[in-house]
Computed example of a mutant assay.
Amino acid sequence: MLPGEALSDKTQDDRARALYGEVRCVVCQNESIADSSADIAADMRRDIRAHITEGKSDREIRDILRARYGDYVLFRPRFALSTALLWGLPLGVLIGGGAIFVLMNRRKGPEPETDALSPEEQARLDALLNRDQ
């Protein structure tokens, strides 16, 4: 954040800085707008400061940013039908993998019993094995 970006009211400035850390830079994507030097990040910081001075709540500011840039702009997106897959996928994969593991182990029954060879079969097998030598 640049020196000219600070708000004169310490409480408002602290709110702005907290929000900067929650918002993803749409250019850098893995960096918050607090850490980004991209022009769009500076614009987003300026917008947040303007909304704070207008008296908007943090929730209203997040809603404005989400409406403008999409759910991805927040590091902690809200739970909604559109993001349910994102939130539920890890749990679904874990449960599905566990179910497959249980089913694969359940299908394996005991090893089939093999009948012992009769004396005639054993003699014939021995004869066949000795013939190659």
Rank of each mutant, 00 (worst) to 15 (best):
3 P>G: 10
76 R>E: 14
98 G>Y: 08
103 L>F: 08
131 R>S: 10
65 L>I: 02
103 L>S: 06
19 L>F: 05
80 A>F: 02
29 Q>S: 07
45 R>T: 07
107 R>P: 00
55 G>W: 11
51 H>Y: 15
113 E>G: 04
34 A>Q: 13
63 D>M: 13
71 D>N: 04
63 D>S: 12
104 M>V: 11
107 R>E: 05
24 R>F: 03
124 R>I: 14
112 P>T: 07
83 T>N: 06
106 R>H: 03
39 D>V: 13
69 Y>L: 01
35 D>A: 12
17 R>V: 14
97 G>P: 00
58 D>T: 12
38 A>N: 08
13 D>P: 02
36 S>E: 08
36 S>K: 00
8 S>C: 03
4 G>V: 13
130 N>E: 14
41 A>I: 09
106 R>Q: 06
122 Q>E: 14
30 N>F: 06
117 L>M: 13
113 E>L: 13
42 A>W: 07
120 E>V: 13
73 V>L: 05
117 L>T: 04
112 P>S: 04
69 Y>P: 00
106 R>T: 03
31 E>H: 08
16 A>L: 09
79 F>G: 07
34 A>E: 11
82 S>T: 15
19 L>M: 15
117 L>G: 01
19 L>V: 10
55 G>V: 09
115 D>C: 04
58 D>M: 09
121 E>R: 11
90 P>S: 07
5 E>R: 03
117 L>E: 05
20 Y>N: 01
60 E>S: 08
21 G>R: 11
39 D>G: 12
133 Q>Y: 09
